[in-house]
Design a protein around this nucleic acid. Structure first.
Lengths: 217, 217, 217, 217
DNA sequence: TATGAATGAGGGTTCATTCAT
DNA sequence: CATGAATGAACCCTCATTCAT
């Protein structure tokens, strides 16, 4: 019985992990303000004072949740520039990976939601996230696009193309509630994500190729 | 009639307008939940009970702020379906108007912020906004794109193109804080908005034309 | 049109009467605290400032409503001692009149409710009401009962009988909400009131006669 | 078990009991609406948030106060149907217990006031109270009266007798402020309550017996 | 004389945080 | 180490009342 009690009531480390994960869910669901420590602790089956005990405050918990979130995302979808092969193929992989990373459901479905919230309503954590998670990815995508476009484009022009592609992807994440109202049929399942990534790839590749061709003339 | 209205309730209208505008600022700055009626009333130099007197509740004030925001944006950058002319020209106008409406600075600069917040963290007002402001615009854009693409496309395919274009536009609004960190040079002024709208138009028209040509074969 | 406006917006006196009557309804329905001046003015179709303008305050309005209420009740069901005839007959009349006065429905249904509220939650007006409306009636009933009981009873004994009879009557007024839950079939219409008054008369007369017989032995 | 409960949450229980008792006083004094949680907490020397912490809402506190009040009254003056003996004796016991329960002074003197308020100005709790406390008592009294009356009476006739008896009892509770003005000599002490209960018993028994005798003929 | 917009005090409730245990 | 009862500030909202018109 004593042992069982120990298993039921996890050690400090487990409590922290559990809180971190549960808080991610709740913050993603309700946002930082609307999420309550009581709800987080209730779902994590820990005492309401645990958050202040382990993390000091609700805000610090939120910061650590974001940190954990993008570390975990980076671990799952690494963005190394070393890949070889035709840039068109790599663009397709990038878009597919990106969209699955943003919109994936099931476990850790809240990473994308947290990111979207943080972008619209940034806290002090945003700059760190940009440098460690976003800028490296942008660099990879910029490389791919530069390869497709060929020479003769300014940095600004390339960046606009990068934003055009990223914008198409994150739209489904940012505007999810609106899309749910506009087109309730959209289901956001694995298959739909793949097909949508395919469309974005086709759309963007077509545009990039036209731009490249024009410049060459 | 205008005079009569002014004589009938001059103070009330001023207070209402003042509250509406101030509330727009505060809601944009803090979000619906975090914004407090006290702060709004303090900035508007009115009593804390004024909001409930004039609008019934914080939520109804928020709804009317969004309504006002949309009407104001639509009045400044109208987009009606009755326009004639080549669809490419109309697409350019749509994108330019849309981006100026979202990102415009100066007076009512908070329109875009409000929309971004509402999309990511929707309140009960979202369905109303979708039906009254978003769905009509989507219909206009769908018409233009259908004309460009020609026949042979499913509704789903057309909708994906619509979302690709809208996604490029709203990205600059949603991800504004991120872009500010990524590329601090971007200034979001009138000229920059026009040039960016131009890029999105070129990018999208290129893609659409390729898709149209492929289908015709 | 000007004349019509005058008829629509009644003169000061009419406004007062209207407020008095409407306030009686609302106070009876909700109680002094729960009743709001806005609701009263809304029902009376007058400005919300009218109550303070005509009566000075909500409390003073309430006092005048009570005054008006028991004056009106006294006018409708006079309690003069001069009636002749057998005391049993006069007891029956008293009980019937009393119950109809308390429970009568339709116009002025709120007199009884107001009284019940004032008894349980007395304001400063209660003593005046007791002296001018209740004590005279009690004196009449005491006279009837004394006649039925005959000699040999202390004032305290007679008063207990008075309270036994009044208690039976006002119970249906005071406990109305409870009775509605206990026995929803009870309808409180004119016929039911008459039959209930009949029962109370029979019940009480039987008791009084037994008491009188015992004492005579 | 009792010890364990005490060790588990000693403070909570004290605070709850204290709140329950203080709330009873304040609710009796001002009524549910007019009583404020701030006043209750001030008198109980606890934080203003305690009521919502321990009871969830002002209304639930009120419900539990009524519950507690009834249980306490029932515990002190029990009236169960299992008693044997002549119905006349049981009627006397019922009336005596009922009146002591309603009018008892000293500790929990507010029980009667609470009941009177709830009957005249019912809250949402009334149905609960009726089913759990009032209807069972009514059933007991109905049984006693049926036994005294004998056969041949309709349910409606019996119910009228029940209400005649209860009406006599609760009158002293409901009309207490009026009686204080009418007959300031009445002191509502234990002795007076007993003698008044005796009168009501005599008065009612006499009436019931006459009714029974008439029917038998 | 009468209005209705505006007021400010106070209502119940929520919540992150604290502290004795 | 961990708990959960208790806290107090702040929340939105209601309301009788006031005052310029």
């Amino acid at each position: 019985m004593a042992l069982e009690t120990q298993t039921l009531k996890p050690l400090s480390e487990d409590t922290c992990k559990s809180l971190l994960y549960t808080a991610g869910e709740v913050f993603a669901e309700y946002g930082f303000r609307a999420a309550t420590v009581r709800e987080i602790c209730r779902r994590a089956n820990v005492n309401v004072a645990s958050i202040n005990y382990h993390f000091g405050s609700k805000e610090e918990l939120y910061a650590q949740v974001l940190e954990y979130s993008f570390q975990s995302a980076a671990a799952k979808y690494p963005h190394d520039d070393s890949r070889t092969g035709p840039p068109e193929k790599r663009l397709e992989e990038f878009i597919t990976n990106f969209m699955h990373g943003c919109l994936r459901c099931g476990q850790a479905a809240w990473h994308g939601k947290l990111m979207a919230r943080e972008m619209v309503d940034p806290t002090g954590v945003l700059p760190r996230i940009v440098e460690r998670a976003i800028r490296p990815r942008k660099k990879v995508l910029t490389g791919i696009i530069t390869e497709i476009l060929g020479e003769g484009f300014t940095d600004e022009e390339v960046e606009r193309c990068v934003f055009s592609i990223i914008g198409q992807c994150v739209f489904y994440n940012h505007a999810r509630p609106v899309i749910n109202v506009l087109s309730p049929a959209v289901k956001y399942d694995e298959d739909w994500i793949s097909r949508t990534a395919g469309h974005i790839t086709d759309f963007s590749l077509a545009a990039l190729r036209v731009m490249a061709r024009r410049k060459r003339r």
